[in-house]
Design a protein around this nucleic acid. Structure first.
Lengths: 147, 147
DNA sequence: TTGGTTGCAAACTGTTTGCAGCCAT
DNA sequence: ATGGCTGCAAACAGTTTGCAACCAA
């Protein structure tokens, strides 16, 4: 936890940004809810519990900043709300997601399944891939078992 | 063209909806711009050229309707705007996209590259896949060749 | 004459921006 | 005292909704 914050602090400083108390609080909320897919509003509400004076605009600005520095990824599951997701440290590709159309749960696939597919795409389409977004829609194991 | 409209008409009728002049005009705009990824606003502006009296709300309602009937797919490339895309007739999976981070062009991959990956995911995660979204971000062949 | 459909305007939601004040350097 | 950062409120963009009018069955 503390080491991860320290590392993010370095990334900020490397780009002449500071780790202000508001930014640190935001980062902590994201780290503490790593398995969730929080929207800016979600982060804001969680933050308010401990730092009631923080403004929503600051949250948006911080998330945008962290996104620019590639500390977090921005993803949209189709409900019109931007969500933010930490990627594994050192991973050069974003992980995949399983969205259950029944209960709405979003699970993660941390293993990269697209290595071969990307090779084929780069070759066939002469396209240099930087990153990808892969989301599966379907029925999760919980909902399946319930039936 | 006409056969495709006829088929969409059937799908509407099958669900007790009508193919009104506004709906037909909307469908035509989408068919005529099949290779593009139009937003509701884009469709609206194209429609206005030939049917100036149409309302934006009707366009939204029609697109939503076509989306429900799975005639068109809704996709968001990260700019916060919903875009609509026809899928190949008979295809049970949505096609893939290549988004150029330099010029913004969106190209399509019509071939389904995820057959094996899906099998693996269904087995490993006990997840019944209905559909997927796969987008690659990178540099397109046009921008690469320009350098 | 009933119920689906439409156009308009207003409402709503998520996000961005202008600005005055604040704080660390 | 300079420049980055913040909170607030207002602005903004995309989308949805309420409603009266319309029109085909």
């Amino acid at each position: 936890m503390e080491e991860r914050i320290e590392r993010i602090k370095q990334q900020l400083y490397a780009h002449n940004y500071k780790l202000t108390p508001q930014r640190e609080a935001t980062v902590r909320v994201i780290l503490e809810n790593e398995e969730d897919h929080l929207s800016a509003e979600d982060v804001y509400l969680l933050l308010k519990e401990k730092s009631p004076e923080i403004g929503l605009a600051t949250v948006y600005r911080t998330l945008e900043l962290l996104h620019e520095l590639k500390v977090i990824h921005k993803i949209n599951f189709g409900d019109g709300v931007a969500r933010y997701d930490l990627n594994a440290e050192g991973a050069d590709r974003f992980h995949h997601h399983l969205v259950c159309v029944q209960c709405g749960t979003v699970d993660e696939i941390l293993e990269d399944l697209l290595g071969d597919v990307e090779k084929k795409v780069e070759k066939t389409f002469n396209f240099k891939i930087n990153d990808h977004r892969l989301v599966f829609h379907g029925i999760c194991y919980r909902c399946k078992d319930e039936e």
